[in-house]
């Protein structure tokens, strides 16, 4: 991750790990790798996200939410001078039933960035089973650029 400044890495860690509220905090996401080439994030197993009473099968929706979150992180890392990032559209294919109590791993990257739009794709699997992807997603994001950095808004805004 030599292409990312130490300051930006600190910002990322602060933004994600010190969030006061919201789904990302509730999912207890852990950033494992970060570079402009992409990011890798871990979501620990959480029985609240299951569909069955035995709590062994994740609802597809949480995988969709996970992809959406990690796309946001990938964009924040890859794109300079962004003031807001809004999801425009999202497409997810559920490739297999998400039946496991293992941690979920997501890898996502921004494969194209223009002044107004970012395009992302990502893959989801259970730890240790990278060959058996459970979901794959693509999304596009509307960007606004300006002097108000997203990081400043996140850390110094009213949500603190």
């Amino acid at each position: 991750m030599s292409d990312i400044t130490k300051r930006k890495m600190e910002q990322i860690a602060q933004m994600w790990n010190a969030r006061g509220k919201g789904l990302i905090k509730h999912m207890a996401l852990q950033i494992e790798e970060v570079s402009t080439e992409g990011v890798r994030v871990r979501m620990p197993f959480n029985p609240e996200f299951c569909v069955d009473a035995d709590q062994t099968r994740l609802h597809g929706g949480i995988l969709t939410a996970l992809l959406d979150s990690v796309f946001g992180l990938a964009n924040f890392v890859a794109i300079e001078g962004v003031s807001t990032i809004a999801t425009l559209d999202l497409r997810v294919d559920y490739l297999r039933p998400a039946r496991s109590r293992a941690d979920v791993i997501v890898r996502a990257h921004c494969f194209r960035e223009t002044r107004h739009i970012a395009f992302n794709s990502g893959n989801v699997w259970f730890e240790g089973h990278e060959a058996a992807e459970i979901a794959r997603g693509t999304a596009s994001f509307a960007l606004t650029r300006g002097n108000t950095s997203l990081f400043d808004a996140m850390t110094k805004g009213k949500a603190s």
Binding site: K21, L23, H59, T64, T87
Partner: peptide, 14 residues
């Protein structure tokens, strides 16, 4: 979005 207190897009999809 904790600043604006918007619903998470993934929650809306769920």
């Amino acid at each position: 979005n904790p600043v604006m207190e918007y619903y998470h897009g993934g929650i809306i999809a769920s």
